[in-house]
Structures are given as C-alpha cells and as structure tokens.
Write a protein that binds this DNA or RNA. Structure first.
Lengths: 351, 351
DNA sequence: CTGAAAGCGCTTACAG
DNA sequence: CTGAAAGCGCTTACAG
C-alpha cells in the first residue's frame, strides 16, 4: 500500500524522453510531437504521476492559488463569503488558501506575510486597514483586493456592501408607510458597517420634514436587541417603527415586543438588515435589507484574478493612482413585520 | 509603492553573512551566535523579508499546510466543518488549502491529485469513497483522514457522526413519552446519513414491543417535509409522533400541521435531527439531535496533524492494518415540539 | 558557529 | 520538435 513518490524524472525515464519534454507534453505546449505526447501521457497515467505543487510554483512563479485572509470564520457572513469566493475560484480553476486569525494586528500581519510564495494574489478583510501603514507593511508584494474593509486611503481595490444606501432605503420604506417617529437600534460603535448604517438612518430622517428619529445602543446580537426593545417600550412617546441595524437585534426586539404583548406590525413596525435565513421564518416575518455576501466574494475574486492575469504584481497601485471601489447595493425585502405590501416571493414559512 | 521582492540572498548580503546562516537564524536553529542572529533579524525586519513559501516547501519537504477537499461549500454543515477545521489548523499553526468541487468523481479526483506538493496531509469528504479504488488511485501519497465519508473497506482513519445511534436515541425519546405509532420522514435514499438514520429508527421500533413505525419518503428539504406532513395527516390512522430525518423536513412538516390546524405537540409530537440554528426559533421549538460538526472537523484535523508529526507519509495504512474510526454521538435536545420535559438551556426564543 | 555546495522537482529560455 | 542546462528560493548535510 506504500505508494512510491513519482517525479517527472520517473516519467521521463519510463517514456524514454527528457524531463523537458515531459513537462511540455503534460502542460499542453504546442511544440511536442503528437505520438510523443500520447506516450508521455500514457506513462504519466500509468505511474499515477501528478506534478509537485511547490516545485511547479517555484519554477513557474505561479501558484494557481489565491489567498484569503479573514478575521474570523464564525457565522453566516463568513460562510457565505467563503462560499462565494470558493465558487469564483473554482470557476477559474484556482485553489484557495484560507487563513483566519483572531483579534490582534500581529496575528493578521503574520497571516498576510506567510502568504508570500504560496499564492498569486490576496483577498483580504482587515479591521486594521485604517491603521496607517498596516497593509503597506504587511501585504506581500502581490495583487490584493479588499473585502468589507475600510481603508483610510483608497489604495487597494475594494468591494463592500453599501450600508449607507441600504439604511437610507430602509428608512425611506418606513417613512413611505407613513411612520414618522422611528427608533434606530444601532450596532457596536467601532464597527464600520454599524457606523454607515447609522449614518444612513440619520441622513434619511434629516431629509424628511416631520420625521424624527431616536437611537438606542446595541451590539449586533439578540440580547442587545431585546434590551433595546424593552427600552423602547419603556420610553415616553412610543415610536411607530423600529429599524434595527441588523436582523439579530431585530429578532431580539421582536421577542421583547411579544413578551410585552405589543403586536408587530399593528402596534409597531419593525425592520432589520442582512436578511439572515431566520428572517423569513420568524413570526411575523421580518422586513429587511438583503445583502448578497456570496456575490460580494465572487465579484472580489473575479477582480483579483483579472488583475493577476493582467500581470500586475505589486502591492498597491502606482503612486497617485486611486484604486477602484465597488459598492454592492443591498435590496429591500418587504415582509410582514413592517406592515408594507409584501412581495409574494418573500413570503413567510416553509413549504 | 512598488515593493521590491526581497529574497534570502538580499538579507544575507545586507547582513554580511551566508544565506545558510540567515536561514538558520530566522528558523531558530540553536547553532547561531546570538549577535549574528540579532543582526540577521534586524536586517530581515528592515527589508520586510518573508520567506518564499514554495521554495521553503520544496527544500524542506514540508508545507505547513493541510488540504481540505469537500464536495460542496453550501450550507450550515460545510461552514461549521470549515470553521472547526480552521480553528484546529490555526491552533497548530497550519495553513489550510480548501478545495471544493461539484458532483462528479473526475472533478474530485483532480482536486485530490492537485494537492500533491502543496500540503502535508489531507482531510477528505468524498461521496465516492465506497467506489472501489477511488481513493487508492487518487489520493496523493500523503496522510489522509476522512470526514463523514463511507468507505467500503476501512482503509483510512475516519471521523463521522453516529447517525444510527442518534436516530435510535430520538426514537427511544419519543417512545419514552408514551408514543407508540411513530411516523418517520426519511432522507434521500442514496445518502448514507439518511440510510443510517432510517436504520436507527427501524431498529429502535423493532426493539420496542407494541411500537409501530411507518415511513414517508423525503429528500432533506423543507418541501419534502411539507409533503410528508400532508401525507401523514391524510393517512388512515394518525401517528402520535413524527420523527423527521433532519430539521429542515421537520420544519416543512410543522408548517403542514399548522396549515391543517393540527397542534404540536398536543395533537402530534414532532422531532428532527441536526439542531440547525432555526430549530430553537420556530414555534413550537423543535426537539432534535444536536450534531457538533465543528467538533467533528476539529478532531479530524487533530488526528491528521498527529499523524503528520509522527512522520507517516503514505496514503493508506500498511496492509492488514485497520484504520481507526471515530464516531461522534449526537446529543438529544428536548424542546417543545416533542412534548417532553424541556431542558431549561434549550428554551425557545431569543433574548 | 559558519559557509560552500548540493539538492528539492519542476519550467523555460537557449541551442540545435 | 527535442534535450542539456540553468534557475526558481530556499534548507540541510558536510566540512571546517
């Protein structure tokens, strides 16, 4: 059962040709006589030869691999992102080297540097990218595309969700339904997505005469949404609608309302953000902004592979150039919780 | 902004030593004079040197990477698996090369072979492993551990969920609650997990005098669960309990019952399998078997890394040896839908 | 403790 | 169309 390790030299010897010819034959180069190619392929197959990845990468200066460096692997967001990147990579026949780290910049720096010589380009999500010099100092000299990452200077191509526009759209939806006093349950303050959603809410409220908003703190989990829901009910003048900065908080809030006997949407409208799978299953089903994270990953990997194929090999653009930035607009999904006219395809319940 | 590519030779030249000394200094070998080491480290840092992965792998015959080959990336199962593997790999400072393919054996064969020279070992989930010779012919000569994969001969170490025991446990739970006529909604026939769950159900029913089971087809999605639920209600003698082979089908069934005005658990008890996140959010919350897929992945990667460190370098065991097989027992999670005494921590709703 | 040299397994100009 | 040779960027016996 011990399989011998077979190299290109074994194939060459067995086929009676040079290793150069084996290499050319197996890599589909044109300048190989057809009978020779057949012969080499037959021998390679018989010996179950497959080329050594590191050797091939070293000599060809190409790894056929993209590196993906993420802050975490936990939760819907990352699994969708990985799925989208994986699909995009496979479509272009690339491998995917996945690295996650926890918390501190040191670890991410190490993860980034370890990619040199292993990948042809990088997809990076970094909470430290707005720290001046962080990426400049730690990205290997390779093409890189940022995902959902806020850079101080737009030095790298970037793909992100348009949280600001999404929050404005949702607020506009609630306003269009006639609600004027709207509560906002905010996400964690240091979080850039949270900041953008809050900004969108504020802007939409400010732009609408007669509308007023009040804000409650939260940190993107159910429990904080639950607390905010209780606080909203306890406050003086009850808002007509609540917009939670993500779905998990909206669910917590929904639960608080249910406990208090407050009906959604009859007594108060409710909306979230993200369209997590749960959103359509809860009762009432949740109006939310749908964000296609898999698509975000897929488009980012396409952009990266295009750049790699174009032969770019530097980390960061030439000086003075501004990197392209791609924002994906989330889509309003109206369900029962906001009391608006539901889109038939977004209906509640399985079956 | 164009960063020059710096190699070990640049560091050596700059530090005034040989490349051998740089290599030893940076890799923490003992036989380097302390001042020399300091000097080399300073230069490496100043030049932002990081070693070239492929070159290092080729000469050291070690990639510090494990390969993960999966049939798909879609859904809770794979994201949890990847998360568990990723955490395990990071804990042991290994990289993770992730490859997914769709459908056919050819594609998986290619994915497996492409791993040679890129990884030190493989974690493989393969629907084709019971096809004689498939793994033998396509696994590179590396240590490999199988995950949730049914092999005809137990030639490789394997980690899997004990679906049979889990289904028996759930059936026993329903029987213990006094239910005697129990319906089972089966998964897709070719699926090995589905087969094992069905086998566990049958065995538990057969072992219990006075109990009777009837079976309905399904294919692990909501819609088939919904159809089965309708069929169950339409049939002559209504069962006292329904056990769906997975949670998604249980949810579909629950929805059919709700539409028909049949109350769960008062009129009929219901249980699922998997403990997907939705299970605790639906109403009534769903009794199910919890399967820790992340743990499955984590343990598999540990087993693989142990084998790699032990210096094994062959695909498959020595002839005559039987590979170890690890089954992870799922855990019964009693919630409202079965009408049993609920565990306090498993309660319904957020907050 | 240090360096010169061989070698890891490929690819790719360069000749022919 | 084919082969001999150089080289990719490291690591590691081997001498000293």
């Amino acid at each position: 059962m011990v399989r011998p390790v077979v190299t290109i030299r074994d194939v060459a010897r067995e086929a009676g040709v040079s290793v150069a010819t084996v290499s050319r034959a197996l890599n589909g180069h044109a300048n190989v006589a057809e009978p020779v190619r057949k012969q080499v392929e037959a021998v390679a197959q018989r010996l179950r030869y497959s080329p050594h990845g590191a050797a091939r990468s070293l000599s060809s200066r190409s790894t056929q691999t993209i590196g993906v460096v993420l802050p975490d692997l936990h939760g819907e967001f990352f699994s969708e992102l990985i799925r989208g990147i994986g699909a995009g990579a496979r479509a272009r026949r690339k491998h995917m080297l996945l690295s996650s780290y926890h918390g501190d910049p040191e670890q991410q720096a190490a993860a980034l540097r370890a990619m040199r010589g292993r990948v042809d380009g990088l997809l990076v999500m970094s909470p430290f990218a707005d720290q001046p010099g962080f990426l400049e100092e730690n990205l290997p000299p390779l093409p890189a595309v940022l995902v959902n990452t806020h850079q101080a200077e737009p030095a790298w191509p970037a793909f992100e969700v348009d949280n600001h526009a999404g929050a404005m759209a949702m607020t506009a939806h609630l306003l269009a339904l006639g609600h004027r006093r709207i509560a906002f349950i905010a996400g964690p303050e240091p979080n850039y997505d949270a900041q953008e959603r809050l900004r969108g809410f504020r802007e939409a409220i400010a732009a609408h005469p007669g509308a007023s908003g009040c804000e409650y703190p939260g940190d993107f989990d159910e429990a904080s949404g639950h607390r905010a829901g209780q606080a909203i009910l306890a406050a003086g003048e009850r808002p007509q609608a609540v917009f939670a900065a993500n779905d998990m908080m909206a669910l917590g809030c929904l639960y608080a309302f249910a406990q208090a006997g407050v009906r959604v949407p009859q007594d108060i409208a409710l909306a979230g953000f993200d369209d997590i799978p749960l959103a359509r299953f809860v009762h009432p089903s949740l109006t939310t902004m749908r964000v296609s994270i898999a698509q975000l990953g897929g488009r980012a990997v396409e952009r990266l592979l295009d750049q790699i194929e174009a032969g770019a090999d530097v980390a960061g653009p030439a000086s003075g150039e501004v990197a392209d930035r791609h924002v994906l607009a989330p889509e309003l999904v109206v369900r029962a919780s906001s009391g608006g006219p539901e889109h038939p395809a977004s209906g509640t319940g399985p079956g």
